[in-house]
Design a protein around this nucleic acid. Sequence first.
DNA 1: CGTGGCATGTAAACGGTTACATGATTTA
DNA 2: TAAATCATGTAACCGTTTACATGCCACG
Lengths: 195, 195
Amino acid sequence: MADSRTSYVILGLLAIESNKSGYDLRKAIEGSVGHFWGESYGQIYPALKRLVADSFIVANDAPNGTRKRRQEYSITEGGRAYLREWLAVPFHNDPPRNEFLLKLFFGGEAAPAVAIAHVKDCNEKNRRMLGMLAQYEEMTRRQAPKNIHEPYWALTIQLGVALTQAALAWGEDAVATLTELQAGNESSGIRQPTS
Amino acid sequence: MADSRTSYVILGLLAIESNKSGYDLRKAIEGSVGHFWGESYGQIYPALKRLVADSFIVANDAPNGTRKRRQEYSITEGGRAYLREWLAVPFHNDPPRNEFLLKLFFGGEAAPAVAIAHVKDCNEKNRRMLGMLAQYEEMTRRQAPKNIHEPYWALTIQLGVALTQAALAWGEDAVATLTELQAGNESSGIRQPTS
DNA sequence: CGTGGCATGTAAACGGTTACATGATTTA
DNA sequence: TAAATCATGTAACCGTTTACATGCCACG
C-alpha cells in the first residue's frame, strides 16, 4: 500500500515534472507546497520505495556512475490515476495546532507585555510572508500562459495573501488593544502577574 | 519532566478554573481551545500523572466512593510559575499541514469540477465556523467584566473571525474563477483529465 | 587537497490518535 | 433494568522528525 499523504505529494510533484530525485523532491517541496505541507527525507525515501513497489512511479535506471549516484523517478499512468483518485476524495484537515493562539488564549496568566510580544512576533512573520507571497505571485504570473497549473497555484497564493493580510490587520489592532489594556491596568493599580 | 505542550494546556485550563478531572479537561478543550489545539485522553491522563509527579498540580483526594471515581486536580504555585515561564517563551508553530491547499495546488491534475467541489466544501465549513464564532463572541462578552481573561479570549475569537471571513471571501471568488476556467476549457475543447 | 553542496538512506525517539477495557452513576 | 453518559486508563499503532552515517562530485 502506497499509503499516507507523503506519497500523494510525491505523485503530485512528479505529475507536474518528471525525472526528480528524492533530493529534488525535497527542494521542490521547500519552494512551493512547503508553506502548507512539509516533508522530511525520513518520509520521502521510504515513500519512494513503496511507490516503486506499487509501480506508481518508476526509477529512471541510468546509474552512469559506479555506486551511489542520483536516482530519478517518473510517474506512471497508474500513478497518475491513483493521484487523481485521491484528489477527488473530500479533503480532511487534521486538527490544527497553533501555539501562538494557545499562548494568546492564556495571556491573562502572564503580564500583558508577554502577549504583546507574541503578537508583534506574529506580525513580523506575517510581513515577511507577504513579501514571499508577492515573489511567488510574480513568478507564477511570468510563466502563466504555458502552464496549466497556473490558475490553481495563483489561487493558493491568493488565499495565502488574503489570510496573511487579515492576520496582519488583526495583529496591528491587537497590539493597540493590548497596549491600552496594559496602560489601564498599570494606572488603576490592578494586581497582575509579573515577568 | 512535565514535557510537551499537553501539560501546558492542562496547566492553563487549571489556572483559569481549578477542580477539573481529566474528563472535564477534555470537554473544556473541546469547547474552547479545541479550535486551534486538540488533545485526546491518551495524552491527557498520562500528562496528569506527570504533572502530579512534578507537583505542578495536586489531586484533590476526595474519593468518596469505593474505587474508580472522578479525580479532580488543581494547579499549584509551582505549576503557575511553570506555566508563566512557558508563556514567555517565543512561540513556535509546527509546520502546517493543510490538505485542502494541497489538493487545490494539484488541481490541474484533475478536472476543474474537483477543485470547485473542494472550495465549496471549504466555504461551507467556514460559514459554519463563522456561526460558531459569533456564539463564542456573545458568550465571552456576556461574562466580560468579571473575567480577566476576556480581552485575550476576545482577541483569539476576533482573529478567528478575521481569518474565516477572509477565507470565505476568497472562496467565493475562487468558485467563480474556477467555474469560468471550466467553461472556457470546455468551449475551446482543451483536453483535460476526467473524473 | 579540502570544503561545501549534492545525494541517499536509516534508526531511534517522539508525539499523537485510536481502539479497547473497565466500571460507576444517572435517567428513562 | 437497560441505555446513556460519566469517567479512567492503556496498548498498539502510525506518521514524523531528528540525528546520524555514508559517500560522490565540483570547485577553489
